[in-house]
Design a protein around this nucleic acid. Sequence first.
DNA 1: GTGAAAGCGCTAACAC
DNA 2: GTGTTAGCGCTTTCAC
Lengths: 305, 305
Amino acid sequence: MTNRQPTLSEVAKLAGVSVGTVSRVINNAPHVSRKARDVVERAIEEFGYVPNVAARSLASQRSGAVVLAISSDDPALFANLFFAQVISGVNAVIEESDLELMLVLAASERGRSRLSKILQSRAAAGVMLLALRENDPLTKIAEGSGVPVVHGGRSLDVDPPWYVDADNRGGARQAVEYLISAGRTRFATITGPQDMHAGVARYLGYREAMALAGLSDQRVVHSDFTEDGGRAAMAHLLAEHPDLDAVMVASDIMAAGALVLLKERGIDVPEQVAVVSASTTSSPPSTPSPRSPPSASRSRRSAAR
Amino acid sequence: MTNRQPTLSEVAKLAGVSVGTVSRVINNAPHVSRKARDVVERAIEEFGYVPNVAARSLASQRSGAVVLAISSDDPALFANLFFAQVISGVNAVIEESDLELMLVLAASERGRSRLSKILQSRAAAGVMLLALRENDPLTKIAEGSGVPVVHGGRSLDVDPPWYVDADNRGGARQAVEYLISAGRTRFATITGPQDMHAGVARYLGYREAMALAGLSDQRVVHSDFTEDGGRAAMAHLLAEHPDLDAVMVASDIMAAGALVLLKERGIDVPEQVAVVSASTTSSPPSTPSPRSPPSASRSRRSAAR
DNA sequence: GTGAAAGCGCTAACAC
DNA sequence: GTGTTAGCGCTTTCAC
């Protein structure tokens, strides 16, 4: 279909200018005459010139790819909305530049050594760490590489200088405040695991909202981001505090369990009890590690149906 | 932390051999003496040599990255288990070689032109197409690039020579056969959209199983892979065929709707009606396009609780 | 404002 | 089995 791509110097020849000029145009450097620029641009267009990235990054010594390192190779774990959103966001920025996105699944020893090779081969302009577990080896690898590091989501044990994460605390707080403004007063909460960042942060947001409204934050059951956990927690709450009129659940999946139980008990939602939850993207503790994976989440409000 | 990485020729000097020898060792080419190989390997180890990928792919003219092109920038759409599984699988293979995985979100015009640039810049060893919509421009771009193409999941309008996809038909059939072996006889099905590959294939599998067992395949409602759709479809089925004792639902999410309705009607699952569904990872029709996104799915059996 | 030329770090062909 | 060397296609000085 297409002929062999022309090289930069071929373009130069065809356009009747020097390689220097073509290069300047491509990198839109200053000191190029309007005329030369036009000629070159036309030639590029006409012959379908596409720069060779390898040559470019070899010559320029800087390069080229932002690495997305995922400390998990469990599809169920990294197939989640939060990561997808982060990736989508990163991609949007990447598109502006001519960087590219490199994906490295670095859960195994082998994957990790691959990652550190890649980071060291000066092929990476920066690295984003995703799905870190507590005490994750990737943290060290990334730091040791000398490449700029940013975390996607936080875990409890690191407080990264650069990160992107959902506002779990603020989101939880807003969700609750919505119910407060709707007139609810006897709140309870079902929290996520308190050794996960999202679990802690959402609980914090809940307590903040309670404190600000002068309401009691004493009705609380800690749970585990699973549906069964949510269901059990709801049963517990109902037993202890039969008079409650609102529940903030720290994740949708737990809320699903809670809603099932409420329905079974014949309690009308949202008439008798209003429910809000966070659309978590966290998973329950991962198999290999006794610790939980990091939380990565996003809050929303919903007067549950 | 680390000093500047040594280059290959520096390693050669330090090891007291020629660059050719070092290069041979690295690419474990033949004709290297045991002794030389040892010396070089030790030097590589000691000085922490990591090949410069840019230089390598420039010199060798072949390079280096497998492109994962996703025709969607909607996080909700590509955050799904099927893609994650595919990616995980691809990654496992990639790890063996020293290729790398490049991620390109190519839903917008801009993203697409970026993709075609990348494919043309001889930086790609192959490309995998994901989340294609019907009549997707990526198909042409990929084909026109001259790079080997493989599809992840199929859409209805292309029959790619190379693809990876779930066995939707076979999975559906197996799921139903399981219920047949459990003694069910009066089957119904709630299908997915019949303009999506997964919708069609699962329905086909269902009909196959019915045919082989000599059962009627006449109880069918077409639906849309949404929960509400599943619920409505279930209501419809119940009205038309109050005597049915098994339902195959083409996706989990529709099954959720169906189960809710069954519960409301006081119908015991699985006592009175058994339900199986496919753990689809498809989404309902995407916003920008009037057509549905491709299906990407995986079947499983479950006697629904 | 433009051109010429010296590399970037590696591979591959060729000579020994 | 090993060493030498000419590029790969670009960027980047340095002259002009």
